[in-house]
Amino acid sequence: MSRDDLIHLEGAVTRTLGGGQMEVETEQGHTLRAVLSGRMKRFKIKVLVGDKVRVSVSPYDLSHGLITYRLK
């Protein structure tokens, strides 16, 4: 699956879970688990509880996603 096929949602980080996972509540009211993308790990971008983020979600599994961008 290419990067263009992913669904991009915006939301806020509500909890930090173990293993680098975070719980994100989207603007539509859905809650999903997400991990930092490789680029965010590579450039050491920190994401804390309360930060607004952009999450890329596969259309096949809407309960898991990748945090691809931290909004300002």
Rank of each mutant, 00 (worst) to 15 (best):
S2K: 09
S2V: 08
R3F: 11
R3T: 07
R3Q: 12
R3L: 15
D4N: 14
D4L: 12
D4W: 06
D5W: 00
L6Q: 01
L6H: 02
H8R: 09
H8T: 13
H8D: 14
H8C: 14
L9N: 01
L9S: 04
L9G: 00
E10Q: 15
G11D: 02
G11R: 02
A12K: 07
A12R: 04
A12E: 03
V13K: 06
V13I: 12
V13C: 12
R15F: 00
T16P: 07
T16W: 03
G18F: 12
G18D: 12
G18Y: 04
G18V: 10
G19Q: 11
G20F: 10
G20L: 05
Q21W: 04
M22H: 05
M22A: 04
M22W: 00
M22K: 05
E23P: 02
E23I: 04
E25Q: 11
E25P: 07
E25I: 06
T26M: 09
Q28F: 05
Q28E: 08
Q28M: 12
G29N: 13
H30E: 11
H30P: 01
H30K: 15
T31H: 10
T31M: 08
T31W: 06
L32H: 02
L32W: 02
L32Q: 01
R33V: 09
A34I: 00
L36Y: 01
L36G: 06
S37Y: 00
S37Q: 07
S37C: 13
S37I: 06
G38K: 15
G38Q: 14
G38L: 13
M40C: 05
M40N: 10
M40R: 07
M40F: 05
K41S: 04
K41L: 04
K41N: 02
R42S: 07
R42Q: 11
R42Y: 07
R42W: 09
R42P: 02
R42E: 10
F43Q: 14
K44G: 13
K44Q: 14
K44W: 13
I45E: 09
I45F: 09
I45T: 08
K46I: 10
K46L: 11
K46C: 09
V47F: 03
V47L: 12
V47D: 06
L48K: 11
L48S: 12
L48M: 13
L48C: 08
L48W: 01
V49W: 00
V49Y: 01
V49M: 08
G50C: 13
D51L: 10
D51Q: 13
K52T: 08
K52D: 03
K52S: 07
V53W: 00
V53A: 07
V53I: 13
S56M: 11
S56V: 07
S56W: 03
S56N: 08
S58N: 10
S58V: 04
S58D: 07
S58K: 11
P59V: 15
P59R: 15
P59G: 15
P59N: 15
P59M: 15
P59L: 14
Y60Q: 09
Y60N: 09
Y60S: 03
D61E: 13
D61H: 05
D61N: 14
L62T: 09
L62P: 06
L62V: 09
S63R: 05
S63E: 03
H64F: 09
H64M: 10
L66D: 07
I67F: 03
I67N: 03
T68N: 12
T68W: 03
T68I: 15
T68Q: 12
Y69L: 08
R70N: 03
R70H: 02
L71A: 15
L71E: 14
K72L: 15
K72G: 14
K72N: 14
